[in-house]
Amino acid sequence: MSQQATPARPARRGRLARSVPLLIAAWLVLEIWLLTVVAGWIGWFPTLLLLIAGVFLGGTVIKRAGARAFRAAVELSKDPQSAQPQTGTSMTVLAGVLLTVPGFLSDLLAVTFLLPPTRALWRALGRRITGTVLRSTAPVGADRFADAMRLQEQLRIHRPDGKIVQGEVVDPPAGPAEPDTGYRPPIAP
């Protein structure tokens, strides 16, 4: 009896996953519009110099945040009790990345990650969103673990050439175990 694989329907994307491309496109349009407005005020050459300066400033911010995180890791490895927790490094690196992205809107957002009052607001917003997401997800239980294991088995039986090998796991019958004689058949080349 031959079983044919039914084509799997793609999983439906959530609201955020559907709107991310639209948000990115809107962000790019706003960046380009703001770039032309600033270039109209101060000229194209100074605008280009500002964009290049933002890239170098972003690299410097990332480098300093990385060095600070490295020093904290070294202190933690030397004496775990006396080391103080490092906070704000991820937001500083994100600010550096946003500064390296050409555009004035991303630079403005990066500045809000660097200033202490707005950084506290971003941190509170991040905690709130994280708490909401964690509360909305179902706890990992035996049923979710079993589903994950079944999915792993389904993914494992696909061969690299695209063919599907049908199979199932058969547990040995429960009964008295045969004594181990120590004999192992040789491995055939």
Rank of each mutant, 00 (worst) to 15 (best):
M1Q: 07
M1G: 09
Q3N: 11
Q4C: 05
A5S: 08
T6I: 15
R9Y: 05
P10H: 14
G14M: 13
R15E: 07
R15A: 10
A17L: 07
R18I: 06
V20I: 15
L22Q: 13
I24W: 11
A25G: 14
W27Q: 13
V29I: 14
V29F: 09
V29S: 09
L30R: 00
I32F: 15
I32P: 05
I32D: 11
W33L: 14
W33T: 12
V38H: 02
G40T: 10
G40E: 08
I42Y: 10
I42W: 13
G43A: 11
W44I: 12
W44V: 13
F45D: 05
F45Q: 11
P46M: 03
L49I: 11
L49V: 13
L49S: 10
L50Q: 04
V55P: 00
F56D: 05
G58C: 01
G59S: 06
T60N: 07
I62C: 05
K63A: 12
K63D: 04
A65H: 00
A67V: 10
R68D: 11
V74N: 05
D79R: 11
D79F: 09
D79Q: 13
Q81E: 09
Q81D: 08
A83L: 03
Q84G: 02
Q84S: 05
P85N: 04
Q86W: 12
T87W: 09
T87Q: 06
T87S: 09
T87M: 05
G88W: 03
T89L: 02
T89K: 03
T89G: 10
T89I: 06
T92P: 01
L94M: 14
A95M: 02
G96A: 07
V97E: 01
V97I: 12
L98F: 03
L99K: 00
T100L: 01
F104Y: 03
L105A: 02
L108I: 10
L109D: 00
L109Y: 02
A110E: 00
V111D: 03
V111R: 02
T112A: 07
L115I: 15
P117C: 07
L121G: 06
L121H: 08
L121T: 09
L121I: 12
W122H: 08
W122N: 01
R123S: 08
G126N: 11
G126K: 05
R128Y: 07
R128P: 01
T130Y: 07
T130V: 06
T132M: 07
T132C: 03
V133F: 12
L134S: 14
L134H: 14
R135C: 07
P139N: 13
V140S: 10
A142Q: 15
R144T: 15
A146N: 13
A146L: 14
R150V: 09
R150L: 13
E153H: 11
L155E: 14
I157V: 13
H158V: 12
H158I: 12
I164V: 01
V165K: 00
Q166S: 04
Q166F: 05
G167S: 02
E168W: 02
D171C: 00
P172Q: 07
P173Y: 09
P173H: 09
P173C: 06
A174W: 06
E178C: 01
P179D: 12
P179C: 02
G182P: 02
G182Q: 08
G182V: 06
Y183I: 08
Y183E: 12
Y183V: 07
P185D: 11
P185I: 04
A188C: 01
A188Q: 04
